[in-house]
Simulated scan of single mutants.
Amino acid sequence: MKLVVNRGLFIKAMSFVVEVANRHRLPILGNIKLVLDTDQLTLTASDLEVELTCHVLLPKGACQQVGAVTVPADKLFSICKLLPEDDVCFDASENLGRCHISSGKSNYSLATLPASDFPSIGQPNTQKSVKVSLDDLSGLLKHTRFAMATQDVRHYLTGLLLEISGQNLTAVATDGHRLAVAYRSLIESCDDTRVIIPGKAVSGLERLLLELAKTAQNGGLVELGIDDEFLYSALNFGQEMTINLTARLIDGKFPDYRRVLPTANDKIAVFDKDEMVAVLRRISVLNTKESPGVLLGFGSSDTATISSNNREQDEAVEVLPVSFTGQPIELSFNEGYLRAVLNVLEGDVRLEMVHPNSPALIYQVGDEHRHQYVVMPMRV
């Protein structure tokens, strides 16, 4: 293959897919697959759980010889970002096992692997298609993905549950210590469906949606294809670039999140989110991996006591304005878990409790989307 392409255009395409290549388990998965046709360049990265493919429409004359090759992703991306000229020439032959990169007076040569050896994640057989606004899908991911487990033998907890019922779309994430639930509406009604999307796909999709929002393409609409094995989406970044995301769904039974949502809470505290986050941030200075807890004490109708201590006998106590109703209660939370929930909320926040060792329900006052969060207290 031989290609002359604008460096900025190539770097933009690489930036969408290179992150997937950084998670490789096989040597060839550390490479980007480049396929050059007469009017299009296709870049593919995969870790066999998530596959990202970027299709770049080329101007006339850019393709000088069609072909395909795989090139080390990190080295290729780093070189291209530092090249001095606007145009970059790629000249590769699978037979020689090298890709020559030149720009102005700069010349590089990288070892390659055959494109035919690059594994495919598989071909989705889209059985269902759901349409949701870009803002709604971005909001779902933002308000839930932080609660996914990062490492857990219960592999289904490392993903995000998407539940479709008619025109209702629900996203749920939990790591066993906290639960996040968010609701949105689909553009059109769809058959009932429950799928678990792997965490790496959730992060990749959220990143793509943030970039897509800058271009205002697709009329603010995102279409997700779902079958028994894959989630698929094609995102249009203008006339010259399209990104395809394919993710292998997690096979497992997600917990019944509705049973976790507490309903008999009789102790209610309402406080300003920013004020609570500021207190938690200050108190966290004393927290350690062995002592991550923060104690919340409610008794007065208009103040709460927030305190923390550690094994070195350091201690912090702060008083926070609240509106509290119910019998006095003290309960301890993992400070990081509690602050992560508050960071996705705004304004006044409502904390509902029933017992020091029972799950607490947290949500934003006046939230039209009804985001709900559950945090398990720590034993004091």
Rank of each mutant, 00 (worst) to 15 (best):
L210Y: 12
D135K: 15
A213H: 10
D175C: 07
N244D: 15
G122A: 02
Q151A: 07
N218A: 11
G238E: 07
G199N: 03
G166W: 12
F230S: 06
F237A: 08
S133V: 04
G225N: 05
M148F: 03
D227K: 06
T193P: 05
E188D: 10
L140S: 12
I197T: 03
T158I: 01
S165W: 02
S233N: 07
L137F: 15
F146K: 01
I187S: 09
R194L: 14
K214S: 11
A201N: 06
V132M: 09
L160F: 04
G225C: 10
N218P: 08
R154K: 12
R184L: 06
K142E: 05
K128E: 13
L224E: 03
A216I: 08
R184W: 03
D135A: 15
Q151N: 10
H177Q: 12
F230H: 05
N244R: 12
A171I: 05
N244T: 15
L137N: 00
G219Y: 04
T126V: 11
S185N: 14
D117G: 14
K214Q: 08
V153Y: 05
G238N: 06
Q127V: 12
N244G: 00
I187K: 05
D152P: 04
D192H: 14
L231I: 12
Y232R: 02
G220E: 05
Q217S: 13
L205N: 10
T144R: 00
L169Y: 11
I197F: 00
F230K: 05
F118E: 13
Q167F: 07
T174K: 00
E188Y: 07
P119V: 13
L169T: 11
T242G: 04
T215L: 15
L161I: 00
L221S: 13
L161F: 06
S133I: 11
T170W: 05
M148G: 09
L179I: 03
D192W: 01
A147S: 14
G219V: 02
G238C: 14
L231T: 00
Q167W: 08
S138A: 15
V181F: 09
E223H: 02
K142P: 01
N236Q: 06
L186C: 09
H177K: 13
V222E: 03
T174F: 00
T242L: 07
V130H: 01
T158A: 11
I243R: 00
I164E: 01
D135G: 08
D117T: 06
G176T: 01
L231F: 07
L224F: 14
I187V: 15
G220A: 09
T242M: 12
V202Y: 05
L231V: 04
I196N: 08
L212S: 05
V130Q: 02
G204Y: 00
H177D: 07
S165F: 08
S233C: 15
S120I: 01
L134W: 14
D228H: 13
P119S: 12
Q217R: 12
T215Y: 10
